[in-house]
């Protein structure tokens, strides 16, 4: 009898191990007995990935404002419960949603990784400060968790084709720089940052190629004048930000981008917060349009 029972047990475990999925996270593997149904995402880049897979997260750490996710992504998803800020999502709200998968950011959430695991299986991936390539890898891991690698590989191939098409339209070796500006400073997104990766993907150059260590570089106007980008895109958090004080300075008009009217104010949500393929394609479109209209104007 005992032997039969143990055989039964072994068979059950074997069967379970057949269905279970193992995904390698940044801090350890996550084992999922079945494809997750209730997912929470603790960074915006994962929301982009989930939208691509057609999975609506039940909860998102959206800093208490669902509008921080850009409209094209939100349109693909059902409403979710806010989990509070990305730096400190509410563990209580996460637990109350009864998730069967938590997708967390290794940069922000490594400290609460164990607490999260106690609530549900936690896949911890790169997000904040990730490169364009990091993001594509992370997206693939998210797809693995749902057993949808093939569909995602297809989507990535499609994405590559779209980006190649945009890149083909860009016939320029101009330097393009994206920055975010808040009340107390301006941060350049260097070649290591996601936006920098998209710019490089189109074959455009960075005015600060030497900045390979930090993704986000806080600058002064002096540094900006020296970097002297041909095109300068700024995403502002707020009405009056540091870049507005730069505009008062006589040196502002010395910058090539400003001189040629290639200074563009853009959406920081798109360019900085919502990292992912959907955003990258819209960003690429904006870049091509910006370069196109300017060459037409010349």
């Amino acid at each position: 009898m005992l032997r039969v029972l143990s055989l039964f047990l072994v068979l059950m475990l074997y069967g379970a191990s057949l269905a279970e999925v193992r995904v390698a996270g940044e801090l350890g593997d996550v084992v999922l007995p079945a494809p997750p149904q209730r997912v929470v995402a603790l960074e915006f880049s994962f929301v982009d990935a989930l939208a691509t897979l057609g999975v609506s997260p039940v909860g998102v750490a959206d800093d208490g404002d669902a509008a921080r996710v850009i409209d094209p992504i939100r349109a693909k998803l059902d409403e979710w419960t806010s989990l509070g800020s990305r730096s400190q999502p509410s563990l209580e709200v996460i637990a109350s949603l009864n998730p069967d998968l938590i997708i967390a950011d290794v940069e922000r959430h490594a400290a609460v990784y164990e607490d999260l695991q106690r609530i549900a299986p936690t896949l911890i991936l790169k997000s904040r400060g990730e490169t364009y390539e990091d993001n594509l890898n992370a997206v693939m891991k998210v797809a693995q968790a749902f057993g949808q690698e093939e569909a995602m590989a297809e989507r990535i191939a499609q994405h590559n084709a779209i980006m190649d098409a945009y890149a083909a339209q860009v016939n320029s070796n101009a330097t393009v720089q994206f920055a975010v500006s808040s009340e107390k400073g301006v941060w350049l997104h260097g070649p290591r940052a996601y936006a920098g990766g998209v710019i490089a993907r189109l074959g455009l150059n960075s005015p600060i190629p030497e900045e390979t260590e930090q993704a986000y570089i806080q600058i002064t106007l002096e540094r900006l004048v020296q970097a002297n980008p041909d095109y300068f895109l700024v995403g502002e958090y707020g009405d009056q930000t540091a870049v507005d004080t730069y505009k008062q300075n006589p040196l502002w008009s010395v910058i090539t981008a400003v001189k040629n009217d290639h200074y563009v104010e853009t959406d920081p949500r798109l360019w900085s917060l919502n990292r992912g393929m959907i955003s990258a394609e819209i960003m690429a479109g904006e870049l091509v349009e910006m370069l196109g209209t300017s060459t037409a104007a010349q």
Binding site: S85, R86, Q88, K184, L221, Y237
Partner: peptide, 25 residues
């Protein structure tokens, strides 16, 4: 700073004390 998160990116930096962006104002 924690409550405001992303908006406070600059505040956090500023809390160390910096003269990087001063103007004549």
């Amino acid at each position: 700073v924690i409550l405001a998160d992303e908006n406070a990116y600059g505040v956090f930096h500023w809390l160390t004390g910096s003269l990087g962006n001063v103007t004549f104002d």
